[in-house]
């Protein structure tokens, strides 16, 4: 249990998936203009990332390793993720239309979110067990949501700031992300 808490804290704060591992930067910059959409994206990613990590772990352990075809990992994982996203979208549309209304637009974007595939592969590389995989993917997903929501909050304010013409938009967003990343550097050595 203690091990798991350490993994989660490490993933959320110390090795934050966006600010120190640079996974999932595209949605981080793309869907952070409004706080509400950032929250939506965060929830959608948390759900898909955790589920995808667990399924890819099972695929790796019970299919790829048993058949000794680990070299098909990349192909198998991306197909699993793509079909999972499709499946979740379908189920959501039928069973929970309200939730679909809120999160539906973010789902297709998740397939090409490198955070999902990245975390799935990292879990295997670090040879985590099922429990550790759960902890690590949950931690990373929460870290993603945390960074995204904080960043969106800053960017909403940034709209009113007097930014030099050339830095408007993407450049100032990146520089803001740099400052956040420096702040998160302060967490190193926490554990």
């Amino acid at each position: 249990m203690r091990e798991m808490v350490i993994i989660i804290i490490g993933a959320v704060l110390i090795n934050n998936i966006i600010l120190s591992q640079f996974l999932g930067v595209c949605p981080f910059l793309g869907v952070s203009k409004k706080l509400s959409s950032a929250v939506g994206m965060g929830v959608a990613v948390t759900f898909v990332l955790t589920l995808a990590s667990l399924i890819t772990w099972l695929v790796q352990t019970f299919i790829l390793e048993l058949l000794e075809i680990e070299y098909l990992q990349t192909i198998a994982f991306i197909l699993v993720i793509a079909s999972l996203v499709q499946f979740v979208e379908m189920v959501m549309r039928k069973k929970t239309p309200d939730l679909y209304e809120a999160l539906g637009v973010y789902l297709p974007l998740i397939t090409t979110n490198c955070a999902v595939l990245g975390v799935a592969i990292i879990n295997i590389q670090k040879s985590y067990g099922f429990g550790e995989t759960l902890a690590n993917s949950l931690g990373n997903a929460l870290g993603f949501t945390l960074a995204l929501v904080l960043f969106a909050g800053i960017r909403e304010r940034l709209d009113f700031a007097d930014v030099p013409q050339s830095l408007k938009g993407m450049p100032i967003a990146l520089i803001t992300a740099a400052l956040m990343s420096i702040a998160f550097l302060g967490f190193t050595g926490l554990l």
Partner: peptide, 25 residues
């Protein structure tokens, strides 16, 4: 040192994009 730590990546890319915008403006 900060340049090869994670924040350095964001700063560098941000400054380059800003510079390119400046040229275009």
């Amino acid at each position: 040192l900060i340049m090869i730590l994670p924040p350095g990546g964001f700063i560098t890319l941000g400054c380059i994009l800003g510079f390119l915008n400046l040229l275009q403006n």
